[in-house]
């Protein structure tokens, strides 16, 4: 239990090559741990928007919506995983979908670990000290990107160059998915309104 939830993730974020290897080949990674990290990230985002110090909290309180935070974290996460899986399947990637989800999930851990305490610390900062807040938040984001890169590379057994290529293609694929989803939604709603109109026409004629 302690091994799965604490030791292994912490080991992974500081020794990513080793960690992701163990995750894939020693099956030390657990899907539920990865998903738990995503949940923790959502919680972090919500807490950060709500409780970060006044000096760094630029969010309009009227626009706070935890459900939005939920879907704007989960949807991009899933979108990335699906897009990456679609691309890498075609490009001889060795990773399974589950492993992609795990790699992306574990990579998010630094954001949770840094941003959550920073939210608390930011309440005791003056304007001059907020630079540290932004610095540490940037570090966590960069750390996340590095981990994601290494994770995808290890999971699919790619070379670095190929990883960069697939990452770019993944972003393009994400764009495609969003575009097609919007298109489908728009068509669907038009179909719905068409049927609704026909229905109304019929009941008003009779």
């Amino acid at each position: 239990m302690k091994q799965d939830f604490l030791k292994f993730p912490l080991h992974l974020i500081v020794r990513p090559f080793d960690g992701f290897w163990d995750m894939k080949y020693e099956s030390k990674g657990k899907l539920k741990v990865a998903l738990l990290i995503v949940l923790a990230l959502i919680l972090t985002t919500i807490l950060q928007k709500q409780f970060a110090g006044f000096l760094v909290n630029m969010v309009d309180p009227r626009s706070l919506n935890s459900l939005d935070d939920l879907e704007f974290t989960i949807l991009p996460f899933l979108l990335f995983c699906i897009a990456n899986w679609s691309i890498t399947t075609l490009m001889e990637g060795e990773g399974k979908f589950k492993e992609i989800v795990m790699a992306a999930g574990y990579a998010l851990l630094p954001i949770v670990l840094i941003n959550l305490p920073m939210t608390f610390i930011s309440r005791f900062m003056t304007q001059e000290e907020t630079a540290f807040y932004y610095l540490l938040n940037s570090i966590s984001s960069i750390w996340f990107l590095v981990l994601l890169f290494v994770g995808i590379m290890t999971v699919h057994q790619y070379t670095p160059a190929k990883t960069v290529l697939t990452m770019v293609l993944t972003v393009v694929a994400m764009g495609f998915v969003v575009f097609i989803a919007t298109l489908a939604f728009s068509l669907g709603s038009q179909l719905y309104w068409f049927i609704y109109d026909v229905y109304r026409e019929i009941i008003f004629r009779t």
Partner: peptide, 13 residues
């Protein structure tokens, strides 16, 4: 006013 808040907070702290 974040700027003024910061000044007040610094003194208060």
């Amino acid at each position: 006013s974040r700027k003024n808040f910061s000044v007040a907070y610094k003194r208060y702290r």
